[in-house]
Amino acid sequence: MSSFPQFLSIESGRADRQYWRDLWRYRELFYFLAWRDILVRYKQTSIGVAWALLRPFLTMVVFTVVFGTLAKLPTQGVPYPILVFAAMLPWQFFANSLSESSNSLISNANLLSKVYFPRLVLPTSAVIVSFIDFMISGIILLGLMAWYHFMPSWRIITLPFFILVAFGAAMGAGFWLSALNVKYRDFRYVVPFIIQFGLYISPVGFSSSIVPEQWRWLYCLNPMVGVIDGFRWAILGGDAQLYWPGFSLSIVFVSLLLITGVRYFRAYERSFADVI
């Protein structure tokens, strides 16, 4: 939004630098799109924003009943709802991000074919919407901790780092899936399956320590394993252990996912308007 005319040259195989500058110029669009999605979601509902709190709360109750009471999984001395919730927060964030961002390009097809803006804004703002949900759910966690008189240790200050990793994983996967979804609508059906399946192979209802030692590294290829373990380690403190080799592997994998995701998205971005 410069006040002086700026010369811009569009050529086939445009310079990347221009793109990142545009992304910065359109930074407010991240906010506006996220704002729109949140506004629209609670229009014409009678309890409005209360749904944002109610949804994760109900899920937590279901999990506590199913895994804590019926399956009787070990809790390492921590109140079971907190054990579940510490894992469910990042998982819900990841799952919501994935389903929202993979659909973000298609549900905004009219924008895509009519107006120019850096397309990366769309899946990213979908992740931001999920992040806002994540923050709201975080309030429930605080409530639970107060309820059980649970005091976190110093490790809680490392939490932003794990949030960042979750962000990276959500965005990386989101870029891949949203770009693929433009061309192959099959992914509309693949994504819900990934989310459903992912819930069972991620240590949400249980602790990843129950996985046999020799398979632990393989298990860590699931990017959410590192994130969820990290969340537990930071929030629960005490006995919760972080399996460092696995965690580093997770980080490497998440970075790889993010970098290739951006690359793939950028490579196919120019044809979105024609294909969609």
Partner: peptide, 15 residues
């Protein structure tokens, strides 16, 4: 700028 050219060049001065 909704789609990118496959060849050629466009020069624009301003938004």
């Amino acid at each position: 700028r909704i789609t990118e050219p496959t060849s050629g060049r466009i020069g624009l001065r301003g938004r």
